[in-house]
C-alpha cells in the first residue's frame, strides 16, 4: 500500500510540475511572439546592404529600417570609416523585400522625440541591389542645432531683417 501511495504522490507532483513548466514556457512564448514579435524580426534571414552617411545623428544598432513606413529590416552595425570619416551603416534586410539600385537611404526621426530609423525610398531602376551592395544615394540625419543655425544665418542675411524690431 505504501509503494502505491508513493507512486500516486509522485505522479501528482509530476502533473503539478508539468503544469508549472508548461505555464512558464507558455509565458516565454508569449514574450517571444506577442511582446517581442519574434516572427516579425527574424534576424537570421535576409541579406545585407551597406550605406554611408556624413552624419547619422542618434541612429543606433537594431533601429528599424522602414520603407513607406513598413519595417523591412534592422540596422545591424554602425562603424566609422577611418579614411573618409563617413559612418558605415550595415543594414539587415528581410529576404522578401528587394530594392532597386537607385534607392535612397535617409535617416529620419519618428515623431518629434521618437527614435531614429533608416528610411529606404525605392527608385525606378530595374536592377536590384544584391547582398553586400552599397546604397549610393544617402541623406544624413537632420541635426536640430545645424537647422537652427542655418535658419538664423539665412534670416540674418535677409536685407530687412534688422529693421522690424
Amino acid at each position: 500500500m505504501d509503494v502505491q501511495g508513493l507512486t500516486v504522490q509522485r505522479s501528482k507532483i509530476d502533473v503539478l510540475v508539468g503544469l508549472f513548466v508548461a505555464a512558464g514556457l507558455l509565458a516565454a512564448v508569449f514574450l517571444a511572439l506577442k511582446v517581442g514579435n519574434l516572427a516579425g524580426f527574424d534576424t537570421e534571414g535576409g541579406y545585407r546592404l551597406e550605406a554611408r552617411f556624413d552624419n547619422i545623428g542618434g541612429l543606433k544598432a537594431r533601429a528599424p529600417v522602414k520603407s513607406a513606413g513598413v519595417v523591412v529590416g534592422r540596422v545591424e552595425s554602425i562603424a566609422l570609416d577611418r579614411e573618409t570619416y563617413e559612418a558605415r551603416v550595415l543594414l539587415q534586410i528581410f529576404p522578401e523585400h528587394r530594392f532597386s539600385k537607385d534607392t535612397i537611404a535617409s535617416i529620419l526621426t519618428s515623431g518629434l522625440l521618437g527614435e531614429q530609423y533608416v528610411s529606404l525610398e525605392a527608385g525606378g531602376d530595374s536592377a536590384y541591389l544584391a547582398s553586400g551592395d552599397r546604397i549610393a544615394k544617402t541623406q544624413s540625419a537632420m541635426i536640430l542645432e545645424k537647422l537652427i543655425g542655418q535658419f538664423l544665418f539665412s534670416k540674418a542675411s535677409e536685407p530687412n531683417a534688422g529693421g522690424s524690431k
Partner: peptide, 19 residues
C-alpha cells in the same frame, strides 16, 4: 499599445537576455 511594443522589443536582445 501592442504594435509599438512589438516594434521595439527585440526577441534576442531583450527577451533572451532577460531570460
Amino acid at each position: 499599445f501592442w504594435s509599438q511594443m512589438q516594434a521595439t522589443v527585440d526577441f534576442r536582445h531583450d527577451v533572451l537576455n532577460g531570460l
